[in-house]
């Protein structure tokens, strides 16, 4: 069996676990971390293709570096928003954030 398929399968599993966490977890921080997990699953795919793809290339790794940078920015902004919201609402539970409804 091809190693690539194993990596892809692992990435899919991680992605789905992250997705499940995003949908079901109440705590906003865990939701953010689950998003990071999903991004990592994607990174794993990129790096796996960089080695086992039809045209092995370093570009996949560079792309994953960019992804990581964006993810870091996202995490920083996310936590900042979380802290700001916490100040006004005294809660970090996602199910209490229903501003979109109004």
């Amino acid at each position: 069996m091809n190693m690539l398929a194993s990596y892809l399968t692992l990435a899919a599993v991680l992605f789905c676990i992250g997705l499940y966490g995003v949908i079901t977890k109440r705590n906003a921080i865990i939701v953010l971390l689950s998003v990071e997990l999903m991004l990592n699953a994607v990174n794993l795919n990129l790096i796996a293709f960089a080695k086992y793809g039809v045209q092995p290339s370093i570009t996949g790794q560079i792309f994953s570096l960019f992804t990581m940078t964006v993810a870091a920015a996202e995490a920083a902004v996310g936590v900042a928003i979380l802290v700001a919201v916490y100040r006004s609402r005294a809660s970090v539970n996602v199910d209490e954030f229903d501003e979109l409804r109004r």
């Binding site: 949908i23 939701v31 199910d95 501003e99 409804r101």
Partner: peptide, 14 residues
């Protein structure tokens, strides 16, 4: 459906 709950939206999208 328009509960404002992000997670419900995500679930619907999924």
């Amino acid at each position: 459906l328009q509960s404002g709950q992000l997670q419900t939206y995500a679930l619907t999208a999924l």
